[in-house]
Every structure is written in C-alpha cells, then in structure tokens.
Design a protein around this nucleic acid. Structure first.
Lengths: 215, 215
DNA sequence: TCACTTAATGGACGCTGCGTCCATATTAAC
DNA sequence: GTTAATATGGACGCAGCGTCCATTAAGTGA
C-alpha cells in the first residue's frame, strides 16, 4: 500500500496541471473512463475480499463504488468476470516461479507458497469461490482460464520441462499431469475440505511423486 | 393462470394425452409424506441432470413436482442440499471399490470409471456444479462431505492401507495424500478444464505416482 | 472561447427467485 | 366418525437482475 493514492475518495489531485474546482461531488455527467474503472475495480476487490462471493452483487459494487450499474455492464459481461478482475486488482499478483536448478526444492517452495496463501490470507477462500462460480458462469470460466489457471499452468510446465532437459525428471512423464498431481491436489483440498492444507501435505505431495509409491 | 373451478375436470387439461395415469390434478390437503418426498426428489434429479445447476431453482422444482415450496423448505435447508439429494436419487450410485490384490490395477480401474463418468454421462458436469455451489452454500458443503466425498475418500484410503499391509505400497506414504494426487487431480481437470480428462491421463496419474518422477 | 459530441449518472421499469406466512382442504390417525 | 395433522394455493415483501431513459457534465475541435 502506497502512501499517496492518486485517486482517493476524498479530494482532487493538486498535482494535476488543470485545477479542478469541484472534484468531490458526484452527480450525473461524464467522468474519465479510467477513474470510473478504477472505482469499480477497487470496490469489487474490497467487497470480494471482505465478504466473499456469497454477497457479491453488481448492485452492491455499484453502490459502493458510487457508480451506476450501466457503467459496470458496459465493461463486464457477468458478475463473475467482474469479481475476477476485482480480485486481480486487490491482490498482489506474483507469478514468479523459482528455477534454481533443483526442481524438487523449487516445487516445494511453490507449494509452500500455496499453503501460506490459503492459511494466512483470504485469497484462498476467494479463489475457491471464483472457481465455484465459474461452474455456472461461462464468462468467468473463460476469463479464469485465460488470466489465472492458464498462465500458472504454463509456467509450472515450463519449469518442469527444463528440469527434464537437465535430467532431473524422467523424460517420459507428462509435466501437465504432474501439475494436476501437485496443484490439482491442493485445489482439491481447497474446494472439498475433507483434509487440511498443511506444510506436511505439501511435502508429502512432492515426496510421493519424486520417490514413487513402490517399496 | 386462469381461475379454475374447484372441480377436478378443468385443472390440467391442455395436454391430457400423456401416458401417465397417476398425475391427477392435485389440490390442497394432506398427502403421504413419502409420496411428496419422492415427487420432490424425482423432479429435482430430473431438472438437475437435464438443465444443470444454473437454472435449478426451488420454484422450478416445486412447480415440476406439483408441490408447494413449503413442502420443500420443510425438509431441505438450501437449494444445494436439495440438488445433492436429487442427484443421488437420479444417479446410479455405485460405491464399489475393487480390491483384487493388485493395487495398481485397482486404482487404474477406478480412475477409468471416473473418466467414463465425465465423458459419457452428465454426472460429471453436475458434480462439478454441486462442488461449485458448495463454495457458497454451507449446507450443501456439509452434506457433500458427509454423503459424497467423505465415504469415497475413506474407501480409497482403506484399499490403499490394505495394499500397504501386503507390501505393495511404501509403508511411510500417507494414503490420504495419494487420494488427492489421483482423484484430486481428476476433479482439478473437471473444475478447471484447461486439459482434457482422458484414459491416457488416468494412466499417467497412476504411472507417475507408482514409478516416481526421478530418472 | 464556444458549440458539439460523448458518456456517466440517478432513477425507474418488469422480471425472477427467495423465504415466509396464511386460510383452506383433505387425508391419516385415533 | 371425529380429530389432528399437514400439503396446497396464493400472497407477501425483499433483493437482485438486466435494460431503458432523460439529464448533466466532461472532453473535443473549430
């Protein structure tokens, strides 16, 4: 969080070259598109992280953002798509995947990050609700695959392919399947919480796969 | 809706060449509880399998079953819980888990059954939507764990524990984690369809885990 | 500078579904 | 046969959806 939010709710930015006499009051009339979009995304992210998907509605986002519903419908096709963008706007989105040369250590590091995310932040719960919503919201499903699961999956596959070239992984295994056996297993516990998501779980995932189950 | 006279003749006339003799126009008054429950579950299952969770509403189930909403609210706390029971009522629910003595073959058999279920029947899609709904429906989440995921998970763990006693699996692996790496991986592809669910996928899941990823 | 174009707002609309509440009708239980 | 139980139809207020309009302000170019 920076100390100088340029578009705070309270006042105009005095650093702008054009002085604005009455920026606080909102009424009818045209407003800068970026400003409107920012207000919407900010409100959507806040509502999503604080109360979750169950009470997330277009009307509430509009009211919180001080924006009309039409402005929202103009840019987002469904409440799920809006929620996803709100999530991205609210959450630090680090897509870094370490590649230190030790594939086993790198996988464990990433899985530990997942454990931490679900244990110590609301992000895990929110992502689970977004995946849930995407089951009956095609627009969200498409956006989720394109902007969330797709890039992450690709990144993990690439790291494993490099490990295969280094000879650290059997060349005949399909890295795409391994992704499902590591992160898919995590999402499984996130979405169907029969068992907890712990550090031991993460360690077990890697150990089982690397060593194999045979005695 | 026109106001129909209280006599039985004028109630549901429009399409009265239906081969079903039973669905006589119903009016007010007490009915056998089992009969009402059956009508509700039957309608819920039919609606769920034919149109999915997106258009599944209490009102529609009530109308289809020829039942008042109150009768539904009397027995089910949420639409998700009703949908789950409707699913069980409509789908052949085989919980058999083979234990031939060859754990690798048995796991593959079960995973192939999952592939078949998602490819050739609407059950996979429906289960995915139920899991999705359960993310924002605590009643459904509880019922799903108790009646669906819990028993299935337990069964798989028991089979693997027996395999451990037979010496077919390393004694130090946690079967609960293996469940996530096999079925969790399948549900991952079901819920986030970046990659298809195929026989090769099922075979790869088992092969990766049994042999291990190391060269 | 000023007229013109663009677009966001408040407010309203009809619709669906929710969850609840009755009065009534009818069967099940005694 | 009488009584108690309960399912039904119908209505209620509420929330949210998705769309539409007239108003009003910001941006644009001459």
């Amino acid at each position: 969080m920076t100390t100088a939010p340029p578009s705070g709710t309270s006042g105009a930015d005095p650093q702008e070259s054009t002085p604005r006499p009455a920026p606080v009051r909102r009424g009818r009339g045209r407003r800068p598109a970026d400003e409107v979009r920012h207000d919407i995304l900010s409100a959507a992210g806040t509502l999503l992280l604080s109360e979750g998907m169950a009470t997330f509605t277009i009307e509430r986002v509009a009211a919180t953002a001080g924006v009309s519903k039409m402005s929202i419908y103009k840019w987002w096709p469904s409440k799920g798509a809006l929620a996803l963008d709100g999530y991205f706007a609210a959450v630090e989105n680090t897509l870094a995947f370490p590649d230190t040369g030790d594939i086993e250590a790198d996988l464990l590091t990433q899985l530990r990050a997942f454990v931490h995310l679900t244990a110590d932040t609301p992000a895990g719960r929110v992502v689970a609700e977004l995946i849930g919503q995407s089951q009956t919201d095609p627009d969200l499903a498409a956006a989720f695959r394109e902007h969330y699961s797709g890039p992450r999956r690709r990144l993990a596959v690439e790291v494993m392919q490099r490990a295969q070239l280094r000879g650290q992984l059997r060349p005949d295994v399909d890295p795409r399947i391994v992704v499902d056996q590591l992160w898919g297993a995590c999402y499984h516990r996130l979405l169907i919480p029969d068992e907890p998501i712990t550090e031991e779980f993460a360690a077990g995932l890697v150990a089982n796969l690397m060593r194999g189950l045979r005695p």
